[in-house]
Write a protein that binds this DNA or RNA. Sequence first.
DNA 1: TTGAAAGCGCTAACAT
DNA 2: ATGTTAGCGCTTTCAA
Lengths: 349, 349
Amino acid sequence: MAKPKSQAIQARRIRPTIHDVAKAAGVSIATVSRALNSPDSVRKELRERVVAAADSMDYMADSVGKALRRQRTQIISTMLPRLADPLFSAVASAIQETLEENGYLGFVQTSGFDNTNLFDRAKRLIEHGTEGLIIFGRIDDQRLLDYCRAHQLPLLSAYSYFEKSEVPTIGFDNYLATRQLVEMLHTLGHSRIAMISGSDKGNDRQQSRIRAFRDINAELGQEPVIEFTHMDFDMADGGAALRRIMENHPETTALVCNRCVIAFSVMVEARRLGIAVPEHLSLTGFDDIDYAALFDPSLTTVAVPSEKIGRAAAKAMIAHLETGAPLGSRRFETEVILRRSVARPRAPA
Amino acid sequence: MAKPKSQAIQARRIRPTIHDVAKAAGVSIATVSRALNSPDSVRKELRERVVAAADSMDYMADSVGKALRRQRTQIISTMLPRLADPLFSAVASAIQETLEENGYLGFVQTSGFDNTNLFDRAKRLIEHGTEGLIIFGRIDDQRLLDYCRAHQLPLLSAYSYFEKSEVPTIGFDNYLATRQLVEMLHTLGHSRIAMISGSDKGNDRQQSRIRAFRDINAELGQEPVIEFTHMDFDMADGGAALRRIMENHPETTALVCNRCVIAFSVMVEARRLGIAVPEHLSLTGFDDIDYAALFDPSLTTVAVPSEKIGRAAAKAMIAHLETGAPLGSRRFETEVILRRSVARPRAPA
DNA sequence: TTGAAAGCGCTAACAT
DNA sequence: ATGTTAGCGCTTTCAA
């Protein structure tokens, strides 16, 4: 029966396997597995022998073998624009912690700000056994959507909430949040408001915020003033955008920056140019990352419950995987945090 | 020969396997594997049939099966104190990008600032097939050291460099860097310098920086003034430490903060207290994260090549795994970046 | 309660 | 050049 064992694979594996434990404890591998996974089903004496043997050699069951057999990896992966950024790292952190607390592990992959080409980057995650995929923002890559539907890979879009969406979304409404912010500025008396946005290509957040801004301007019969700035770098260069606006639209009294890091760089440039914030120019950010409160003047922003969203997304995915509960959308509220970077305009509108 | 197949495992696997491709292409699974992994060894016509079949069903080879067979997962994991932090996320980002560029994938796990209890958190990473482990800072957990040595798991300590170390270290010399910084302050005329440190428990960076500070003070025959602040929170509370120092040592003219985020919070509190920086009090940070240059006044810090260190660590680990090249230590240089938060002391020393 | 054995998806040695 | 097959580490069915 027993054919000659083929020569060992070029295994440089040093980790003990279930066979090593079984041999040391003088039992079968089945008993080792049971002793470790469902202790009650093994007689006390044997169980103790197995556990002792396992401990003595630092045995850890290999998740790879386990995953192959169980067809479960307990891996949930996340794709987000960048990692070295206070906003995204906060979300990633919340997701990772939640996964860990629940016995999962997560890959984190960066994708840049353009969500139209996610599939290629997601491939490796999928290959490696990702059981559920959390994407930051709206998923604008049809290939990814098609793949996940065809192969029943649970997919979740986090951070942006959309009423109508093929994929469940857990996040907030960027359109509403921006309207709320701009209307607050209006209420304060600002009628000449400009926006600085990051590139909106494949970026639903910027798209929604721009749309809200355009709509408000249209309702007021105004031409919207919008400048764009690159977000490919670690720190946005809002300075150039500020100069363009000040040159072409010197009547501007308030500046809506679509990300906090844009606002910070604008603040630095305003300082350099001698433009007083908020006396001469009111300034707002978006996301309310921790630094917003530390800058001088402190920055008015839209507070987004990023950690809550991250945790909720991870939990929803885990619940779906464990109980089969359908993945549902969930909308979080945002709040305008009024800080010193905003004041009434220099001249009554 | 063919025994009856046992009933299917409760597989909710929807992903096509190599068998599906083989069937569709009318070849054996070996041919599929070859056509995909070493195309040259398969006749053109067959190869094309296989590729077409694979493409048509979005086939991706399952890394789990592959890993089990090859005894290689291509996973390198990283442990660092926190993720939601500009310093650590920058390092994590550099590591992850480097891994990805080289066909690897990485788990990122957070461990908090105390490196004396890493093993338990590393367990899951090891179970999941981590081939190499990169730890942020010195590894103060003997269990982890023992385990990795016993089971030949490649281990690398990144960020802090140590001449003498059981484990290879890729980073910079915190002791030297702090000496450099404090001596610069001395040269400017500061003789009353205080330090604010994060907790030094299991944190080699703080330990080295404190030691450097103590040594300098001892050489000058001075009692070192050191206050501690919690780093468990997103933003350090350097404010309380500042108040203690100003109360007990009002003669202080310069404050060395052992992390940038500490310095930021000190700056905010100084503003609140009406302490002018740098006119009344010079302030330094550490790490030179991007925000250091944006604050007002801009912050003098020690510039650490965090991304370079991250990339170097990842590359070294990959090279070790691929070529067997021994993991070596490597020391990076740091540089004091003199910015506006530092000036000559208010009264000549 | 325990052991034997099948098989998860894949690669590679061996046979043809 | 292609197919057959063993086996990576594990869980779980089946038999005892």
